[in-house]
Design a binder for these strands. Structure first.
Length: 367
DNA sequence: AAACCGTGGTG
DNA sequence: TCACCAAGGTT
Protein backbone atom coordinates (compact mmCIF):
# COMPACT_ATOMS: atom_id res chain seq x y z
CA UNK A 1 0.00 0.00 0.00
CA UNK A 2 1.31 3.39 -0.92
CA UNK A 3 1.04 6.00 1.78
CA UNK A 4 1.56 8.93 -0.57
CA UNK A 5 -1.61 10.62 -1.69
CA UNK A 6 -1.97 10.63 -5.47
CA UNK A 7 -1.94 14.05 -7.02
CA UNK A 8 -5.15 15.44 -8.42
CA UNK A 9 -3.36 17.33 -11.17
CA UNK A 10 -1.07 14.57 -12.39
CA UNK A 11 -2.76 11.19 -12.74
CA UNK A 12 0.29 10.43 -14.83
CA UNK A 13 0.97 7.48 -17.04
CA UNK A 14 0.66 5.15 -14.06
CA UNK A 15 -3.10 5.09 -14.14
CA UNK A 16 -3.31 4.22 -17.84
CA UNK A 17 -0.52 1.65 -17.66
CA UNK A 18 -2.03 -0.12 -14.68
CA UNK A 19 -5.50 -0.05 -16.15
CA UNK A 20 -4.44 -1.36 -19.56
CA UNK A 21 -2.53 -4.18 -17.87
CA UNK A 22 -5.65 -5.10 -15.96
CA UNK A 23 -7.72 -4.89 -19.15
CA UNK A 24 -5.38 -7.25 -20.98
CA UNK A 25 -6.13 -9.85 -18.33
CA UNK A 26 -9.78 -9.12 -17.54
CA UNK A 27 -11.47 -7.62 -20.60
CA UNK A 28 -14.98 -8.94 -21.03
CA UNK A 29 -15.78 -10.55 -24.34
CA UNK A 30 -18.60 -8.65 -26.01
CA UNK A 31 -20.11 -9.13 -29.48
CA UNK A 32 -19.14 -5.62 -30.66
CA UNK A 33 -15.73 -5.58 -29.03
CA UNK A 34 -12.32 -6.39 -30.53
CA UNK A 35 -10.18 -7.80 -27.75
CA UNK A 36 -6.50 -6.86 -27.37
CA UNK A 37 -5.62 -10.42 -28.42
CA UNK A 38 -7.74 -10.19 -31.56
CA UNK A 39 -6.21 -6.86 -32.49
CA UNK A 40 -2.76 -8.43 -32.20
CA UNK A 41 -3.88 -10.70 -35.03
CA UNK A 42 -4.86 -7.76 -37.20
CA UNK A 43 -8.57 -7.53 -36.39
CA UNK A 44 -9.80 -3.94 -36.43
CA UNK A 45 -12.96 -2.46 -34.98
CA UNK A 46 -15.92 -1.94 -37.33
CA UNK A 47 -17.15 1.66 -36.85
CA UNK A 48 -20.68 0.60 -37.74
CA UNK A 49 -20.81 -2.05 -35.02
CA UNK A 50 -19.16 0.27 -32.51
CA UNK A 51 -21.70 2.98 -33.31
CA UNK A 52 -24.66 0.57 -33.18
CA UNK A 53 -23.58 -0.81 -29.83
CA UNK A 54 -22.92 2.63 -28.34
CA UNK A 55 -26.37 3.93 -29.30
CA UNK A 56 -28.01 0.83 -27.83
CA UNK A 57 -25.92 1.08 -24.67
CA UNK A 58 -27.06 4.64 -23.89
CA UNK A 59 -28.66 4.30 -20.44
CA UNK A 60 -29.11 0.61 -21.12
CA UNK A 61 -27.42 -2.45 -19.67
CA UNK A 62 -25.15 -4.79 -21.63
CA UNK A 63 -27.48 -7.68 -20.92
CA UNK A 64 -30.49 -5.88 -22.37
CA UNK A 65 -28.53 -4.82 -25.46
CA UNK A 66 -27.05 -8.20 -26.43
CA UNK A 67 -30.08 -9.78 -28.18
CA UNK A 68 -30.98 -6.50 -29.92
CA UNK A 69 -27.44 -5.98 -31.15
CA UNK A 70 -27.34 -9.53 -32.53
CA UNK A 71 -30.66 -9.06 -34.33
CA UNK A 72 -29.71 -5.68 -35.83
CA UNK A 73 -26.19 -6.76 -36.87
CA UNK A 74 -27.56 -9.84 -38.60
CA UNK A 75 -30.44 -8.11 -40.35
CA UNK A 76 -28.54 -4.92 -41.22
CA UNK A 77 -24.82 -5.85 -41.39
CA UNK A 78 -23.66 -2.43 -42.54
CA UNK A 79 -24.70 1.21 -42.33
CA UNK A 80 -25.89 1.22 -45.94
CA UNK A 81 -28.17 -1.73 -45.16
CA UNK A 82 -29.72 0.24 -42.33
CA UNK A 83 -30.03 3.30 -44.55
CA UNK A 84 -31.97 1.18 -47.05
CA UNK A 85 -34.33 -0.16 -44.38
CA UNK A 86 -37.83 1.10 -43.63
CA UNK A 87 -38.10 3.18 -40.46
CA UNK A 88 -41.13 1.12 -39.44
CA UNK A 89 -39.07 -2.07 -39.50
CA UNK A 90 -36.37 -0.40 -37.40
CA UNK A 91 -38.96 0.68 -34.83
CA UNK A 92 -40.38 -2.86 -34.71
CA UNK A 93 -36.91 -4.31 -34.17
CA UNK A 94 -36.21 -1.74 -31.43
CA UNK A 95 -39.49 -2.40 -29.59
CA UNK A 96 -38.87 -3.26 -25.95
CA UNK A 97 -35.45 -1.62 -25.67
CA UNK A 98 -36.83 1.78 -24.64
CA UNK A 99 -35.89 5.40 -25.35
CA UNK A 100 -37.44 5.15 -28.79
CA UNK A 101 -36.06 8.44 -30.09
CA UNK A 102 -32.78 6.53 -30.27
CA UNK A 103 -34.25 4.27 -32.95
CA UNK A 104 -35.45 7.19 -35.06
CA UNK A 105 -32.09 8.95 -34.70
CA UNK A 106 -30.30 5.68 -35.48
CA UNK A 107 -32.11 5.50 -38.80
CA UNK A 108 -31.59 9.22 -39.51
CA UNK A 109 -27.89 8.87 -38.73
CA UNK A 110 -27.53 5.89 -41.06
CA UNK A 111 -29.22 7.91 -43.81
CA UNK A 112 -26.81 10.82 -43.35
CA UNK A 113 -23.73 8.61 -43.26
CA UNK A 114 -24.87 6.78 -46.40
CA UNK A 115 -25.82 9.90 -48.35
CA UNK A 116 -23.40 12.58 -47.14
CA UNK A 117 -20.36 10.56 -46.08
CA UNK A 118 -20.17 7.86 -48.72
CA UNK A 119 -21.22 5.17 -46.26
CA UNK A 120 -18.28 5.75 -43.92
CA UNK A 121 -18.51 7.21 -40.45
CA UNK A 122 -16.50 10.41 -39.81
CA UNK A 123 -13.24 9.58 -38.03
CA UNK A 124 -13.11 12.68 -35.83
CA UNK A 125 -14.91 13.44 -32.60
CA UNK A 126 -16.38 16.65 -34.05
CA UNK A 127 -17.55 14.94 -37.21
CA UNK A 128 -19.28 12.24 -35.18
CA UNK A 129 -20.79 14.75 -32.76
CA UNK A 130 -22.65 16.41 -35.63
CA UNK A 131 -24.63 13.25 -36.41
CA UNK A 132 -28.16 12.60 -35.06
CA UNK A 133 -28.24 10.73 -31.75
CA UNK A 134 -24.51 11.17 -31.13
CA UNK A 135 -23.70 13.40 -28.15
CA UNK A 136 -20.47 14.13 -26.28
CA UNK A 137 -20.08 10.66 -24.79
CA UNK A 138 -20.89 8.66 -27.91
CA UNK A 139 -18.73 10.83 -30.18
CA UNK A 140 -15.73 10.40 -27.90
CA UNK A 141 -16.36 6.66 -27.48
CA UNK A 142 -16.59 5.96 -31.22
CA UNK A 143 -13.57 8.19 -31.95
CA UNK A 144 -11.49 6.34 -29.35
CA UNK A 145 -12.70 2.77 -29.92
CA UNK A 146 -13.19 2.72 -33.68
CA UNK A 147 -10.67 5.38 -34.81
CA UNK A 148 -7.95 5.25 -32.16
CA UNK A 149 -8.36 8.94 -31.27
CA UNK A 150 -7.28 10.02 -27.76
CA UNK A 151 -10.72 11.47 -26.97
CA UNK A 152 -11.87 12.01 -23.39
CA UNK A 153 -14.63 9.43 -22.94
CA UNK A 154 -16.90 10.17 -19.99
CA UNK A 155 -19.93 8.07 -19.15
CA UNK A 156 -21.65 7.29 -15.85
CA UNK A 157 -19.12 4.59 -14.99
CA UNK A 158 -16.15 6.85 -15.62
CA UNK A 159 -17.75 9.67 -13.63
CA UNK A 160 -18.03 7.30 -10.70
CA UNK A 161 -14.47 6.00 -11.03
CA UNK A 162 -12.95 9.48 -11.31
CA UNK A 163 -14.96 11.15 -8.56
CA UNK A 164 -13.72 8.36 -6.30
CA UNK A 165 -10.11 8.46 -7.53
CA UNK A 166 -9.87 12.20 -6.80
CA UNK A 167 -12.60 12.64 -4.21
CA UNK A 168 -14.40 15.18 -6.36
CA UNK A 169 -16.94 16.69 -3.97
CA UNK A 170 -18.74 18.81 -6.55
CA UNK A 171 -22.21 17.35 -7.15
CA UNK A 172 -23.20 16.10 -10.58
CA UNK A 173 -23.92 17.44 -13.12
CA UNK A 174 -21.79 20.48 -12.21
CA UNK A 175 -18.77 18.21 -11.77
CA UNK A 176 -18.81 17.12 -15.40
CA UNK A 177 -16.33 19.79 -16.55
CA UNK A 178 -13.90 18.89 -13.80
CA UNK A 179 -14.25 15.18 -14.51
CA UNK A 180 -13.76 15.63 -18.23
CA UNK A 181 -10.52 17.55 -17.65
CA UNK A 182 -9.20 14.82 -15.38
CA UNK A 183 -10.11 12.12 -17.90
CA UNK A 184 -8.46 14.10 -20.71
CA UNK A 185 -5.25 14.28 -18.66
CA UNK A 186 -5.32 10.56 -17.93
CA UNK A 187 -6.13 9.38 -21.46
CA UNK A 188 -3.09 7.84 -23.19
CA UNK A 189 -2.16 8.41 -26.83
CA UNK A 190 -1.66 4.68 -27.18
CA UNK A 191 -4.76 2.45 -26.95
CA UNK A 192 -7.23 5.20 -26.00
CA UNK A 193 -10.14 2.93 -26.94
CA UNK A 194 -8.97 0.15 -24.65
CA UNK A 195 -8.41 2.73 -21.91
CA UNK A 196 -12.02 3.92 -22.15
CA UNK A 197 -13.42 0.40 -22.29
CA UNK A 198 -11.22 -0.65 -19.37
CA UNK A 199 -12.60 2.20 -17.26
CA UNK A 200 -16.16 1.27 -18.16
CA UNK A 201 -15.54 -2.42 -17.42
CA UNK A 202 -13.98 -1.41 -14.12
CA UNK A 203 -17.00 0.70 -13.25
CA UNK A 204 -19.43 -2.03 -14.26
CA UNK A 205 -17.76 -4.91 -12.44
CA UNK A 206 -15.60 -3.53 -9.58
CA UNK A 207 -16.13 0.20 -8.98
CA UNK A 208 -19.88 -0.35 -8.66
CA UNK A 209 -22.36 2.21 -7.26
CA UNK A 210 -22.96 0.17 -4.11
CA UNK A 211 -20.39 -1.90 -2.24
CA UNK A 212 -17.52 -1.57 -4.71
CA UNK A 213 -15.03 -4.44 -4.69
CA UNK A 214 -12.03 -2.28 -3.81
CA UNK A 215 -9.92 -5.29 -2.79
CA UNK A 216 -10.03 -6.45 -6.42
CA UNK A 217 -9.43 -3.02 -7.92
CA UNK A 218 -6.14 -2.44 -9.75
CA UNK A 219 -6.39 1.29 -8.95
CA UNK A 220 -7.04 0.99 -5.22
CA UNK A 221 -3.61 2.37 -4.32
CA UNK A 222 -4.27 5.44 -6.46
CA UNK A 223 -7.80 5.99 -5.18
CA UNK A 224 -8.24 8.84 -2.72
CA UNK A 225 -11.73 7.77 -1.67
CA UNK A 226 -10.51 4.23 -1.03
CA UNK A 227 -7.65 5.59 1.06
CA UNK A 228 -10.12 7.48 3.26
CA UNK A 229 -12.76 4.75 3.23
CA UNK A 230 -15.31 7.09 1.65
CA UNK A 231 -15.70 5.33 -1.73
CA UNK A 232 -19.46 4.91 -1.39
CA UNK A 233 -19.95 8.66 -0.90
CA UNK A 234 -19.05 9.38 -4.54
CA UNK A 235 -20.27 10.60 -6.89
CA UNK A 236 -22.28 13.27 -5.09
CA UNK A 237 -25.71 13.57 -6.70
CA UNK A 238 -28.77 15.73 -6.02
CA UNK A 239 -31.79 14.07 -4.46
CA UNK A 240 -34.29 12.62 -6.89
CA UNK A 241 -37.71 14.07 -7.36
CA UNK A 242 -40.83 12.17 -6.50
CA UNK A 243 -42.62 10.51 -9.40
CA UNK A 244 -46.19 11.67 -9.95
CA UNK A 245 -48.90 9.13 -10.80
CA UNK A 246 -50.84 9.49 -14.04
CA UNK A 247 -54.10 7.71 -14.76
CA UNK A 248 -55.78 6.58 -17.94
CA UNK A 249 -57.67 3.84 -19.72
CA UNK A 250 -56.69 1.54 -22.59
CA UNK A 251 -59.09 -0.12 -24.99
CA UNK A 252 -58.45 -3.50 -26.58
CA UNK A 253 -60.93 -4.00 -29.39
CA UNK A 254 -61.06 -7.54 -30.75
CA UNK A 255 -62.60 -8.46 -34.07
CA UNK A 256 -64.49 -11.73 -34.59
CA UNK A 257 -61.41 -13.34 -36.15
CA UNK A 258 -59.23 -12.39 -33.17
CA UNK A 259 -57.51 -9.40 -34.75
CA UNK A 260 -56.83 -6.41 -32.47
CA UNK A 261 -57.22 -2.72 -33.29
CA UNK A 262 -53.90 -0.87 -33.14
CA UNK A 263 -52.96 2.78 -33.64
CA UNK A 264 -49.66 4.54 -34.30
CA UNK A 265 -48.58 7.08 -31.74
CA UNK A 266 -47.28 10.53 -32.75
CA UNK A 267 -43.64 10.58 -33.88
CA UNK A 268 -42.53 12.82 -31.03
CA UNK A 269 -42.93 12.62 -27.28
CA UNK A 270 -43.45 9.60 -25.08
CA UNK A 271 -43.26 6.31 -27.02
CA UNK A 272 -42.98 8.46 -30.14
CA UNK A 273 -43.60 6.61 -33.38
CA UNK A 274 -44.48 3.39 -31.59
CA UNK A 275 -47.65 1.32 -31.81
CA UNK A 276 -50.34 0.82 -29.19
CA UNK A 277 -54.03 0.32 -28.55
CA UNK A 278 -56.29 3.39 -28.28
CA UNK A 279 -56.07 5.06 -24.88
CA UNK A 280 -57.34 8.12 -23.11
CA UNK A 281 -54.91 10.88 -22.29
CA UNK A 282 -52.76 10.07 -19.29
CA UNK A 283 -53.59 12.69 -16.71
CA UNK A 284 -52.48 13.38 -13.19
CA UNK A 285 -56.02 13.33 -11.80
CA UNK A 286 -58.99 11.09 -12.45
CA UNK A 287 -61.50 13.68 -13.59
CA UNK A 288 -64.11 11.14 -14.53
CA UNK A 289 -62.43 11.04 -17.93
CA UNK A 290 -61.38 7.45 -17.36
CA UNK A 291 -63.54 4.36 -17.46
CA UNK A 292 -65.49 2.75 -20.27
CA UNK A 293 -67.39 5.99 -20.97
CA UNK A 294 -64.20 7.48 -22.41
CA UNK A 295 -63.79 4.72 -25.01
CA UNK A 296 -62.99 5.75 -28.61
CA UNK A 297 -66.27 4.19 -29.76
CA UNK A 298 -69.25 2.44 -28.22
CA UNK A 299 -68.90 -1.28 -27.59
CA UNK A 300 -69.57 -3.84 -24.91
CA UNK A 301 -66.45 -2.95 -22.91
CA UNK A 302 -65.46 -5.16 -20.00
CA UNK A 303 -62.89 -4.20 -17.38
CA UNK A 304 -59.82 -6.44 -17.35
CA UNK A 305 -58.04 -4.86 -14.40
CA UNK A 306 -55.37 -2.21 -13.97
CA UNK A 307 -51.78 -2.40 -15.14
CA UNK A 308 -48.99 -0.28 -13.69
CA UNK A 309 -45.91 0.86 -15.56
CA UNK A 310 -43.10 3.05 -14.30
CA UNK A 311 -41.59 5.50 -16.78
CA UNK A 312 -38.58 7.72 -16.18
CA UNK A 313 -40.52 10.62 -14.72
CA UNK A 314 -43.96 9.29 -13.79
CA UNK A 315 -45.86 6.18 -12.85
CA UNK A 316 -48.75 5.15 -15.07
CA UNK A 317 -51.87 3.26 -14.03
CA UNK A 318 -53.97 2.14 -16.95
CA UNK A 319 -57.43 0.63 -16.60
CA UNK A 320 -57.71 -1.99 -19.33
CA UNK A 321 -60.99 -2.60 -21.20
CA UNK A 322 -61.77 -5.30 -23.72
CA UNK A 323 -64.63 -5.72 -26.18
CA UNK A 324 -65.46 -8.02 -29.06
CA UNK A 325 -66.48 -5.79 -31.95
CA UNK A 326 -68.79 -7.14 -34.62
CA UNK A 327 -69.14 -4.09 -36.83
CA UNK A 328 -65.89 -2.47 -37.86
CA UNK A 329 -65.95 0.91 -36.12
CA UNK A 330 -65.09 4.03 -38.04
CA UNK A 331 -61.76 4.56 -36.38
CA UNK A 332 -58.23 5.21 -37.49
CA UNK A 333 -55.68 2.45 -37.09
CA UNK A 334 -55.44 -1.11 -38.35
CA UNK A 335 -56.37 -4.62 -37.36
CA UNK A 336 -53.49 -6.86 -36.37
CA UNK A 337 -53.96 -10.64 -36.37
CA UNK A 338 -52.81 -12.65 -33.34
CA UNK A 339 -49.87 -13.97 -35.38
CA UNK A 340 -48.68 -10.54 -36.49
CA UNK A 341 -49.10 -8.96 -33.06
CA UNK A 342 -45.68 -9.99 -31.75
CA UNK A 343 -44.04 -8.36 -34.78
CA UNK A 344 -45.64 -4.97 -34.19
CA UNK A 345 -43.71 -2.00 -32.76
CA UNK A 346 -45.26 -2.47 -29.33
CA UNK A 347 -43.50 -0.92 -26.34
CA UNK A 348 -43.51 -2.90 -23.13
CA UNK A 349 -46.33 -0.92 -21.53
CA UNK A 350 -48.60 -1.85 -24.46
CA UNK A 351 -47.62 -5.50 -24.18
CA UNK A 352 -48.71 -5.30 -20.55
CA UNK A 353 -52.08 -3.93 -21.66
CA UNK A 354 -52.55 -6.72 -24.20
CA UNK A 355 -51.48 -9.32 -21.66
CA UNK A 356 -54.13 -8.03 -19.28
CA UNK A 357 -56.75 -8.50 -22.01
CA UNK A 358 -55.34 -11.81 -23.31
CA UNK A 359 -53.56 -13.63 -20.46
CA UNK A 360 -51.98 -16.14 -22.87
CA UNK A 361 -50.23 -13.38 -24.80
CA UNK A 362 -46.66 -12.14 -24.33
CA UNK A 363 -45.60 -14.63 -21.72
CA UNK A 364 -42.01 -14.45 -20.64
CA UNK A 365 -39.63 -15.34 -23.42
CA UNK A 366 -41.57 -13.76 -26.25
CA UNK A 367 -39.69 -10.82 -27.73
C1' DA B 1 -30.85 24.53 -18.20
C1' DA B 2 -33.97 21.68 -16.43
C1' DA B 3 -37.28 18.51 -18.19
C1' DC B 4 -38.25 14.85 -20.96
C1' DC B 5 -37.50 10.22 -22.58
C1' DG B 6 -38.17 3.19 -21.21
C1' DT B 7 -36.98 -0.73 -19.38
C1' DG B 8 -35.25 -4.44 -16.52
C1' DG B 9 -32.06 -5.82 -12.91
C1' DT B 10 -30.68 -5.37 -8.18
C1' DG B 11 -29.90 -4.85 -3.07
C1' DT C 1 -40.78 -4.13 -1.86
C1' DC C 2 -39.03 -0.33 -3.90
C1' DA C 3 -35.51 3.02 -4.64
C1' DC C 4 -31.75 3.23 -7.37
C1' DC C 5 -29.75 3.21 -11.66
C1' DA C 6 -27.44 1.76 -16.54
C1' DA C 7 -21.80 2.68 -22.15
C1' DG C 8 -26.98 9.87 -22.59
C1' DG C 9 -29.20 12.89 -26.10
C1' DT C 10 -32.43 16.38 -27.28
C1' DT C 11 -34.99 20.43 -26.55
Amino acid sequence: MSSAKPSNTAPGPDLAAILLGWYDRHARSLPWRVSPAERAHGVVADPYRVWLSEIMLQQTTVQAVKPYFAAFAKRWPGVTDLAAADTEDVMKAWAGLGYYSRARNLKRCADVVAKDHGGRFPGSEDGLRALPGIGPYTAAAIAAIAFDQPAAVVDGNIERVFTRLFEIETPLPSAKTEIRAAVARATPDLRPGDFAQALMDLGATICTPKRPACTLCPLSDLCQARCSGRQELFPVKPAKKEKPVRLGAAFVAERGDGAVLLVKRPDTGLLGGMTGVPTTNWTVRADGATGATSAPFAANWHGKGVITHVFTHFELRLEVFHAVVTLAPDHQGWWSSPDSLTGEALPTVMKKVLRAAFPALFRKGTP
